[in-house]
Design a protein around this nucleic acid. Structure first.
Lengths: 244, 244
DNA sequence: CCAAAAGTGTTATGCTTACACCCATGC
DNA sequence: GCATGGGTGTAAGCATAACACTTTTGG
């Protein structure tokens, strides 16, 4: 390994002042932001304003600043895009094929994020500098995507499914208080298969990560008990000797 | 996102000829190479020759070339270090804290690899440019490591354990033909707990990824049947709707 | 009283675990 | 013949999966 320092170039080259002995890739983070809206699993996409892929939809993301961690970069992008903080975030995979971006070598670290319904309500979704528009798309009905973002998204969906099959973290997509039927609908939508009501309830309650609020949601018919997740639910589920 | 091109600087600055508008991190791959030697789970480390951490042991790795994929970089490093090809390789995680390398911003994509006993036998372990020495270390008895490599290694071990708990891929650490007792010893060593012989055999045979060779290994006492893994074993186990 | 969603238990099946003795060989 | 590792089966407990009816409310 050789010198890793940076040299500021003289004023005559101020347009490209960061110089290195060897060529370096650009490093970005891309965020796959899932939310559960209108009874559907949705993902946030932004429409690109510039070439390449102008007009196409893409995952939100941006360059990693030189002095911020990867996760900090992901959180920053996420907040820029939605205004929301304290989002459940998890590193997904790093995509670095040399030709994945026609402008040059760009390595992207993909993060996947789950936005609760409360957070969606508080959020103000907007495009960044490079985008005309930002909106939620149903994951089962997506437009063509820019770059290799279809592949990244497919992978994120696999991971989300795995997560819900093996952990009880589905409540991260719901509001603070929710009914078991709502939670079941989340699982059914993500896993894309129907689940047995009694078995679902037994299993999710046995996990010990939910507690009753004592309140009820009346809505036309028999009121449903409201639950919330316990303070240590996320931690507990993460620790359940699964991976990662 | 702004210009991503590269400018070759004039001859006067030929020492650092690659210039960019914004500062860029260096990107490396690090390999956690596991093998099962002398009845122990071992990992390949190289001793650093240069500062920082001169004399300390570190994971093998190196810079990602500008025109190679991340996995290709990992395979190249692996072959440089060991001379072995066709290794089982899997992306682990990307570590990118700003201060993980005192020389500057270095983001590393960690890959973990499993070397079969045959491959170990064929390999010629040697240090790279930057190393004085390379050798195998028992994972349960490691020296202090350079950078954040202890953290990376701990994570790799967690992943390996998870892999062996949930898949039958332990044979990747053994020679082409092996006995069930040898396979069990691999699992016990990696998981660091004793396993029941009968249950282990039932489970591993039920997975349908092993077949008898018809041959036996005599070694002092009652000869043991030799098994090999089937051609599609790796594929099969990967596909078993687990993650990743 | 009817529509709509909430809520609730039991049984059968398969998987996991625990556990102890005989077998084949080399010396 | 004995020491050493190879090889085998069964029973109990536990988790999963399948399955249908009653309850509560609003209109």
């Amino acid at each position: 390994m050789s010198g890793n320092g940076v040299d500021r170039a003289p004023a005559s080259r101020r347009d490209k002042p960061y110089c290195y002995e060897h060529p370096r890739p650009a490093v970005t983070v891309d965020i796959i932001l899932f939310a559960f809206l209108q009874n559907a699993l949705q993902v946030l996409l932004i429409q690109r304003r510039n070439e390449p892929f102008a007009g196409r939809w893409a995952l939100p993301g941006g360059f990693v600043q030189i002095d911020e961690s990867l996760e900090a970069a992901a959180r920053r992008e996420l907040e820029e895009e939605t205004g929301v903080q304290d989002v459940y975030l998890e590193q997904l995979y790093t995509f670095g094929d040399p030709d994945r971006d026609p402008r040059g070598r760009v390595i992207t670290v993909a993060y996947f994020a789950l936005l609760s319904a409360d957070q969606v309500a508080r959020s103000r979704v907007r495009g960044g500098d490079d985008a005309q528009a930002a909106r939620w798309w149903n994951v089962y009905d997506l437009p063509p995507l820019a770059f290799d973002h279809d592949r990244i998204l497919a992978y994120a969906l696999r991971r989300l499914r795995w997560k819900l099959e093996w952990t009880g973290l589905g409540f991260l997509l719901l509001p603070r208080e929710f009914t078991l039927s709502e939670l079941q609908r989340v699982y059914e939508t993500v896993l894309n298969e129907p689940l047995d009501k009694r078995n679902f309830r037994r299993k999710i309650l046995a996990a010990g990560i939910l507690e009753e609020t004592g309140r009820y949601r009346g809505g036309g018919h028999r009121p449903a008990r409201l639950y919330r997740f316990t303070a240590k639910a996320v931690e507990l589920e993460q620790a359940r000797r699964r991976f990662p």
